[in-house]
Simulated scan of single mutants.
Amino acid sequence: MIVQAHLDYIKAGARCITSASYQSSAEGFMKWGISEGDAEGLMCKSIKLCDEMARRYKKGRR
């Protein structure tokens, strides 16, 4: 769902994207009982999803 949202923004003319984690933090996740390692993993996942979208977009433009 996040990857598709990123793709839709780019297709609509956006020239940059964000990782969709702007309101997230490891500290915030940990307040909800998520371990530090898992919290960091979730933050990294948002970057990986952004990267996945960029790869799909580039592949579709070739």
Rank of each mutant, 00 (worst) to 15 (best):
residue 6 H to L: 11
residue 46 S to H: 08
residue 35 S to W: 03
residue 46 S to A: 12
residue 27 E to C: 01
residue 31 K to P: 00
residue 42 L to R: 05
residue 21 S to N: 13
residue 40 E to K: 12
residue 39 A to Q: 02
residue 34 I to H: 02
residue 1 M to E: 14
residue 28 G to P: 00
residue 47 I to A: 09
residue 1 M to P: 09
residue 18 T to W: 14
residue 2 I to Y: 07
residue 27 E to Y: 04
residue 8 D to S: 13
residue 60 G to M: 13
residue 22 Y to G: 13
residue 11 K to I: 06
residue 17 I to F: 04
residue 57 Y to M: 10
residue 33 G to N: 06
residue 23 Q to I: 08
residue 28 G to M: 03
residue 58 K to F: 10
residue 42 L to Q: 04
residue 38 D to F: 05
residue 17 I to S: 04
residue 54 A to Y: 06
residue 3 V to Q: 03
residue 14 A to M: 13
residue 20 A to Y: 10
residue 37 G to I: 07
residue 54 A to S: 09
residue 52 E to Y: 05
residue 55 R to A: 11
residue 48 K to A: 11
residue 27 E to P: 00
residue 37 G to M: 06
residue 46 S to K: 03
residue 47 I to N: 08
residue 44 C to N: 15
residue 18 T to H: 11
residue 28 G to C: 02
residue 44 C to T: 14
residue 23 Q to C: 11
residue 11 K to A: 13
residue 58 K to A: 13
residue 37 G to E: 08
residue 43 M to W: 03
residue 49 L to S: 02
residue 53 M to F: 08
residue 57 Y to G: 00
residue 52 E to A: 08
residue 32 W to E: 15
residue 38 D to I: 06
residue 49 L to R: 03
residue 28 G to F: 00
residue 33 G to Y: 01
residue 60 G to C: 09
residue 55 R to L: 12
residue 42 L to P: 00
residue 33 G to F: 04
residue 37 G to W: 02
residue 12 A to N: 10
residue 44 C to D: 15
residue 25 S to I: 03
residue 20 A to E: 15
residue 49 L to N: 03
residue 32 W to D: 14
residue 10 I to W: 07
residue 50 C to P: 01
residue 17 I to R: 00
residue 44 C to F: 12
residue 22 Y to S: 11
residue 39 A to N: 01
residue 24 S to I: 11
residue 1 M to H: 12
residue 34 I to Q: 01
residue 13 G to E: 07
residue 43 M to Y: 04
residue 40 E to M: 10
residue 10 I to H: 04
residue 56 R to N: 07
residue 31 K to W: 04
residue 59 K to L: 10
residue 3 V to T: 04
residue 34 I to P: 00
residue 30 M to P: 00
residue 51 D to K: 14
residue 18 T to S: 15
residue 56 R to C: 05
residue 13 G to H: 04
residue 2 I to V: 12
residue 61 R to A: 13
residue 53 M to N: 02
residue 20 A to N: 14
residue 7 L to S: 07
residue 35 S to G: 03
residue 57 Y to I: 03
residue 38 D to N: 09
residue 24 S to N: 11
residue 50 C to F: 06
residue 11 K to C: 11
residue 17 I to N: 04
residue 51 D to R: 14
residue 29 F to S: 01
residue 21 S to P: 05
residue 10 I to A: 09
residue 32 W to P: 02
residue 43 M to D: 03
residue 51 D to H: 12
residue 35 S to K: 01
residue 57 Y to P: 02
residue 49 L to A: 03
residue 39 A to K: 00
residue 30 M to S: 00
residue 26 A to G: 01
residue 34 I to M: 07
residue 3 V to H: 02
residue 6 H to R: 06
residue 32 W to S: 14
residue 35 S to D: 04
residue 9 Y to I: 08
residue 7 L to R: 06
residue 51 D to T: 09
residue 46 S to D: 08
residue 58 K to G: 08
residue 10 I to P: 01
residue 13 G to D: 08
residue 56 R to Q: 12
residue 41 G to M: 03
residue 23 Q to F: 10
residue 19 S to D: 15
residue 38 D to W: 03
residue 54 A to C: 13
residue 35 S to C: 01
residue 8 D to F: 09
residue 58 K to W: 10
residue 28 G to N: 02
residue 22 Y to L: 11
residue 54 A to I: 08
residue 38 D to K: 07
residue 40 E to H: 13
residue 36 E to Y: 04
residue 29 F to T: 00
residue 60 G to S: 10
residue 1 M to F: 09
residue 43 M to S: 03
residue 62 R to C: 12
residue 43 M to E: 05
residue 56 R to M: 10
residue 23 Q to P: 07
residue 35 S to I: 01
